[in-house]
């Protein structure tokens, strides 16, 4: 079966995130005084062949931790759902 996977990679808490800090500093000038705790990351989407949803999720997590994220500084979250053709 084909599943659609979505992996989100974000900097771990405590790791300096100058990009998000810079975005946040720009917000008041645009009138977004009510926004805080900005964090940026990367998002990966791919299709995966697996027997069931659990094994698709497991494979996606393997790929995420082996390559898509650097565990020293990044966390991952992974979701899979049945593929939409």
């Amino acid at each position: 079966m084909r599943f659609d996977a979505h992996v989100e990679v974000r900097l771990r808490p405590g790791i300096a995130d100058p990009e998000s800090a810079t975005i946040e500093r720009a917000l008041p000038a645009l009138g977004f005084d009510d926004v805080s705790s900005m964090s940026t990351g990367r998002s990966f989407r791919f299709a995966i062949e697996a027997d069931d949803e659990d094994s698709a999720a497991e494979r996606a997590r393997e790929l995420a931790t082996a390559l898509l994220a650097n565990p020293v500084m990044e966390d991952v979250s992974t979701t899979v759902e049945p593929g939409r053709d």
Binding site: A16, E19, M73
Partner: peptide, 17 residues
């Protein structure tokens, strides 16, 4: 070398961006 696990840690974007 850090990505290959031959050295610990990682290199991230310069604080100055």
């Amino acid at each position: 070398l850090t990505e290959a696990g031959l050295l610990p840690g990682a290199l991230q974007k310069n604080r100055t961006l």
